[in-house]
Nucleic acid binder design. Structure first.
Lengths: 190, 190
DNA sequence: CCTACCGATCGGTAGG
DNA sequence: CCTACCGATCGGTAGG
């Protein structure tokens, strides 16, 4: 097997792991079951990965990058803060549709990351949240968002947007995105 | 030790379990650590409970009752559907404040319930969701809630409301409740 | 990539 | 409520 095949097989294992972790949670997922799903003996998995935790690290790190990059891009966009909030809502919903299983694991299993990845993850999360809250605050200062506690607003948005990765149906992606945006933007606007 | 003391000790163990499960997740929580937290040897826990799973069953069942009862009460209230939705939002936020750890476990660890409790739980959940969606639909029919996909609206609300059990700070309970309600109700109203 | 295997940890029990 | 212990399962390794 050449490097390309090896890489794609690893990728395949990571995808299967994301699905397994989504279904059962990280701790309740065994390498034995993962092996069975990808058609290998349990020990053979270790020809492709170093540890079960590496799978979680890979999944969480990849997803974190997407959000960090998305935030950077939105931050530097020449738009109003209100529009930026709308773009952030879109970022979460669209990303959830692109890779539902990975985003589910990233959202719900990150606390099982081993150190030092857990600390790095938490720092990135904190950074992201601060950026998000700042944009919300700016919207209030610009007079387009009603005056409310920034942290409460942030938490409400971030959770309202944390579910489309369950509902896999492709056909109503657009409708889901539009409706969530509609509810939240109407809820925030002055 | 008399029955009353035994009951309260069991209650104490359940509370400690709710906190442990909230922190680490059900699968990653060990009876050994729970025992340490309540000041017992691991095996002594079993003088008070039958199994680790029993703890999860108790926590989830208790919380489920609160929501089922809350729903029944709100359903039969002589108010508009819009007001009922507002009451449901309140039910979730207030309940989260009353018993944050239990509600966190109920919300995030129920999938680890053993059968037949898992099936019972899922059925109750389905029932609750149908009632919730019906009230939303009635609000649209009454012309007070904008026409949107009922299921998407439901999911957005239910997730927007699924976080106050983290933020333990008692002093801004009222503000959290009011702000979430404000955002969502503004988001739904025609 | 497989066979064979290991040490650690787990939930739980026996017996007092 | 404790001491002592057990079988099951886990992540992972050795060696080919």
């Amino acid at each position: 097997m050449n490097d390309l095949q090896k890489k794609s097989k690893k990728h395949y294992i990571i995808e299967a792991a994301a699905e397994l972790f989504t279904e059962k949670g990280f701790k309740a997922s065994s390498i034995r079951e993962l092996a069975q799903r990808v058609g290998l003996e349990p020990s053979s998995i270790y020809s492709h990965i170093h540890s079960k935790e590496e799978l979680l690290i890979t999944i969480c790190t990849n997803c974190a990058s997407r959000f960090t990059e998305g935030m950077q891009s939105i931050k530097s966009t020449p738009k109003s803060s209100l529009e930026k909030v709308e773009m952030l809502i879109g970022l979460h919903v669209e990303t959830a549709f692109e890779d539902p299983a990975a985003i589910a694991v990233f959202s719900e299993e990150w606390r099982h990351l081993p150190e030092p990845y857990l600390t790095i993850f938490k720092d990135a999360k904190k950074q992201y949240e601060q950026n998000f809250r700042l944009i919300i605050k700016q919207g209030m200062d610009e007079g387009t968002i009603r005056e409310m506690d920034t942290n409460i607003v942030f938490n409400t948005i971030i959770h309202a947007v944390r579910w489309p990765y369950f509902s896999g149906k492709k056909y109503d992606r657009k409708k889901i995105s539009e409706t969530i945006t509609q509810i939240l933007m109407h809820g925030l606007k002055k």
